[in-house]
């Protein structure tokens, strides 16, 4: 039973890894740029919800309507100001420089968050925070379950957008072959902007969900980026649903390894999975063999 409980907790956290990873993968898939400050955007989304709750008592689930759009704007500004400069570069140089810019940006955003809000950890305690759902001996925290469900719905919405609308199809076409997309009358740069904004908005949504399920502090960014990266390496860039499942899988793997090997080694499983993927499937997603 305790194993089952661990699986439940792992899955709840892992779903958030999945949502975080989809945003990162969207940007990478379309722009061929890796934004390693994705986790810091998640952190900003978390703070947005925290302050909306603390100052005005806004329920974090409602503040999704603010954190998503707000981070879309942040992403748009970052793209226009920084990442768009890399568009004319060769693939490899573009990727490398996007990683460097993201790394610098991560530092900047983290320091700004410390200066603005101190390094303290912040958590949202809603009235329903402690409520659980009992399934026999297994306990499911309701707020976390709801956060996971909301994340899943957000991904479903993204899926519909990408498959059923013209701008969505333009994004997928650009991801597959930007030159062919341009020949279809698609403005590649506008599509890049849109994809970067959407990926950042997803980071904002993830941030709100993190603030519900966990706590935020200026330094959480890097570890969220890392989870998202590992999930993307595990899942590839194939499908949104696959990425979500890989996130849940990583969460469960972490939770079980913490249970069986001891909490100290909780994180090591991510590194091990990464190395195994490189050994077993050494091509595809992030580069050429």
């Amino acid at each position: 039973m305790i194993v089952l409980q661990n699986i439940v907790f792992g899955a709840l956290v892992g779903g958030l890894y999945g949502v975080a990873a989809v945003g990162l993968a969207l940007v990478f898939g379309v722009l061929k740029m890796l934004n390693v400050s994705h986790g810091e955007l998640i952190m900003l989304g978390g703070y947005a919800s925290f302050w909306l709750f603390s100052l005005w008592g806004l329920d974090p689930f409602l503040s999704l309507a603010a954190s998503g759009p707000a981070l879309f704007l942040v992403g748009a500004v970052l793209y226009l100001g920084l990442f768009s400069r890399l568009v004319p570069l060769h693939d490899e140089e573009k990727l490398k420089n996007s990683i460097l810019i993201g790394f610098g940006l991560a530092l900047i955003l983290q320091v700004l968050a410390i200066l603005a809000w101190t390094a303290d950890e912040r958590a949202i305690t809603t009235a329903y925070a402690g409520q659980v759902w009992r399934l026999g001996a297994v306990v499911v925290p309701l707020a976390r379950l709801a956060a996971l469900a909301v994340g899943f719905v957000a991904l479903g919405g993204l899926h519909l957008f990408l498959h059923r609308t013209d701008p969505g199809r333009a994004i997928r076409a650009t991801a597959e072959d930007w030159q062919a997309a341009a020949l279809m009358g698609i403005s590649v740069r506008r599509t890049y902007l849109c994809a970067f904004g959407l990926g950042s908005a997803l980071a904002g949504v993830s941030g709100t969900l993190v603030s519900i399920a966990d706590a935020v502090s200026p330094s959480i960014g890097l570890s969220w980026t890392l989870k998202a990266l590992i999930v993307v390496v595990l899942a590839g860039l194939g499908s949104i649903f696959g990425t979500f499942v890989a996130g849940v899988g990583l969460g469960i793997a972490e939770s079980l390894s913490a249970f069986f090997l001891g909490g100290v080694y909780r994180e090591v499983v991510g590194l091990a999975l990464f190395l195994i993927v490189l050994a077993v499937r050494p091509s595809g997603l992030f580069g050429r063999p």
């Binding site: 890796l34 390693v36 490899e92 990727l95 990683i99 890097l222 570890s223 980026t225 890392l226 990266l229 590992i230 390496v233 994180e267 090591v268 991510g270 590194l271 990464f274 190395l275 490189l278 050494p282 091509s283 997603l285 992030f286 580069g287 050429r288 063999p289």
Partner: peptide
């Protein structure tokens, strides 16, 4: 390092953070 792309950057980042 056998692979191209971002694997090395991700791997080193993962190693340090973990």
């Amino acid at each position: 390092l056998r692979l191209r792309g971002a694997y090395f950057a991700i791997g080193t980042l993962a190693l340090a953070e973990i």
